[in-house]
Simulated assay, not measured.
Amino acid sequence: MSMTDTLERTAGSAADAAAAEPLVRIQQLSKQFGSGAHPVRAVDNVSFDIFPGETLGLVGESGSGKSTIGRLLTRLIEPTAGSLQYRKDGQVVDLAHLSQRELRPLRSDIQIIFQDPYASLNPRMRIRDVLGEALSTHGMATGAARQKRIEELLEQVGLRPEHAERFPHEFSGGQRQRIGIARALAVQPRFIVADEPLSALDVSIQAQVVNLLGDLKDRLGLTLLFISHDLDVVEYLCDRVVVLYLGRVVEVAPTEALYARPRHPYTQALLAAAPIPDPAQRRTIPLLSGDLPSPKNPPSGCVFRTRCPQAESQCAQADMQLRAVGGSHTGHLQACWKVQD
């Protein structure tokens, strides 16, 4: 059985889509920046599925390739290799190999919410123009219908219709992110990439935006790729989680299973690094030491071996293939050769 077959057969249980085909299938996706003998390998042979109606979390340290994958999925940057299969009306198209003209009809299906809500909004445009631009570009509404749709979008994200006449600098950070969400929703997408949408917000505001995303996802039937470094939010919001390290997938699992029993040493260390509310509680897993290796010259074998407390000499030659653990029905995959179950 190929790894693609394994991913397809095991990944759907947590998404309430046991019989569904993936909405998005990423296969052997790679992105290199630069050229020569040592290009930056930002994403290195990544494969995973995203099922209709699920929220998939994508986690890892800064520099792991999370945002690069999000930009590849939306074709804001071009992949070096691999495929980005997207299912629409029963047909599968490879987004990675479509021209910009061929992509245009699909742009309304796939939208992105950016990390920095202020930088992603034109400071010279009123909010009615920010939201209306998307509607006009895709020919979805004009005149009175356009104005009505703008008011509906603002209300959907918890803002008032009169906010349409303001400029971005007149809003708080949380309100600006709500506008970014409204802009993504304007063209009625099926799939949204949320690229660390909480990182620029205060903690008190983060909870409001998380609840908003969860409510909109359920109410509108959206599929969501949620990119974040906040493991608590991922546990709360996501159905499944993909763990990245140095541009490679090291573990994929339903959220409950991953947090209850992480299998890969990197996932264990990542979860152990999360703050512990009880100061009397002791950590049982050592924290990560050392810096992330350079993506220009990643370690041979297992790329995590230079920081892994369990590393052995064999890890320098070991492959990084995902393997099912706990039985193929669990949807739990990990890439450490030492983990047997």
Rank of each mutant, 00 (worst) to 15 (best):
F114H: 01
I113E: 03
D94G: 07
R107M: 08
P79V: 00
Q100V: 07
R128M: 05
I113G: 09
I127P: 13
K88I: 11
S99H: 01
S99M: 07
R104Q: 14
V93S: 05
L98D: 06
S108D: 03
M125E: 14
R126C: 08
Q85G: 07
H97K: 14
T80G: 13
G90L: 03
V130W: 13
K88E: 13
R87C: 05
N122T: 05
R126H: 11
S99Q: 05
Q111C: 10
D89T: 03
R107V: 12
E102S: 13
Y118M: 09
P105I: 02
Q115W: 10
L95R: 00
P123C: 05
V93W: 01
R107Q: 13
G90C: 09
R104Y: 15
A81D: 13
L98H: 08
L95Q: 00
L121S: 12
S108T: 13
D109L: 03
E102H: 12
D129G: 03
S108K: 15
Q85W: 04
L103K: 03
A81L: 07
Y86I: 00
I113P: 04
Y86C: 01
N122A: 10
A119Y: 10
D116M: 04
A96T: 03
L98T: 12
P117W: 00
V92C: 09
R101I: 13
V92D: 13
Y118A: 10
Q111S: 08
R107A: 11
S108I: 05
R126T: 11
R87H: 09
Q91K: 12
S108H: 12
T80P: 15
L121Q: 13
I113K: 06
A119R: 07
L95D: 00
